[in-house]
Nucleic acid binder design. Sequence first.
DNA 1: TATTGTTATACTCTATAACTATA
DNA 2: TATAGTTATAGAGTATAACAATA
Lengths: 188, 188
Amino acid sequence: MTAKTPDPAEASVPSSGPSSAPAPADDQHAELLAVLPRITRLSAALTRSRVTDRAAEAAGLALDRPAVGVLISLRTAGTPLRIGEIAERMQVVGPHVTRQVQALEKRGLVRRVADPHDRRVSLIELTGPGTDAANRYVTSVLGWFSGVLADWPDQDREDLIRLLTRLTDDVTARLARLEEDGPDAPPR
Amino acid sequence: MTAKTPDPAEASVPSSGPSSAPAPADDQHAELLAVLPRITRLSAALTRSRVTDRAAEAAGLALDRPAVGVLISLRTAGTPLRIGEIAERMQVVGPHVTRQVQALEKRGLVRRVADPHDRRVSLIELTGPGTDAANRYVTSVLGWFSGVLADWPDQDREDLIRLLTRLTDDVTARLARLEEDGPDAPPR
DNA sequence: TATTGTTATACTCTATAACTATA
DNA sequence: TATAGTTATAGAGTATAACAATA
């Protein structure tokens, strides 16, 4: 079912490579292009299917995705985080996090603790119920997702995790540089 | 709630330290969880940085991302597509595609051709300018993205493409089944 | 009656701008 | 003056519902 057409598509694209070296293989170059669409598609599929929302529901959480994202960020960190740190981990902007945290506070899933060294800052911390909720959510999602990878060879699973981690790091690092270079600098 | 995979590993806090790996299974299980957040983060980073919008601009395209998505879907297919086919490839819903196509039509980047076998259907086709625009866009994005992977070993690049492709296919397939099973079925 | 696509509308997520309070 | 966070507002992206035309 996987339409893996040879895709002569790249043919007409002038390989104005970074002038480093002639592309090792046009095939690779062509395939490279497929990485970004796949990430987009994957993300869109996850959004549309609402797996995460279902998992939240299964965990007894009446929370939308961004709120769950905050919970998971805190759980993953294993330590209280500042608003700005949460925003960076979620790759969103400050005010967005402020609102999510307020909602979570009202439900008693997180609490604020003052930073003794800087009174502008407030640290966000999971409460007991918040920790439980996050754990239930994780269990639910993991149950679903491990089914997806159940048939994969161990080596492939390992490689996927490793490569995806590196890709994420490399991309975010490069994007950060891009922003510094000026908001109007064209990619490349 | 509903039956979930037995999963003792997640109950407690992960990421204590990858260095010691006495229980490879547990570690993997814990790490597995990191895959989804990374995809989310990657996607968010790409959105926020507007790489794609910059590339569109660099290609002389005053189009938003969804419209470019349609263009790229058509270019990748290499053949005219129906509205429904575009929607499926983009993992979005029909009406959304209708609107994007209308915008592209006005700019002369795509055109509709009637399907002789089914008069309900109209096939969407890239025009000459549309093809050129799509190619310019691809060149621009590729220029940026190949920079990200430039330092990667060939083997890793290959593996990334292969694994990401399979992951996308597996996930979308499983999600499709999930939808069929009823819109209220919990993940599993 | 089922399928393909369209129109009209509403909602979710996230960003930007202007502000407050510390530093 | 610079930084962390908040309030208020705006916009992009996508979904749902009701409908039309063809099969």
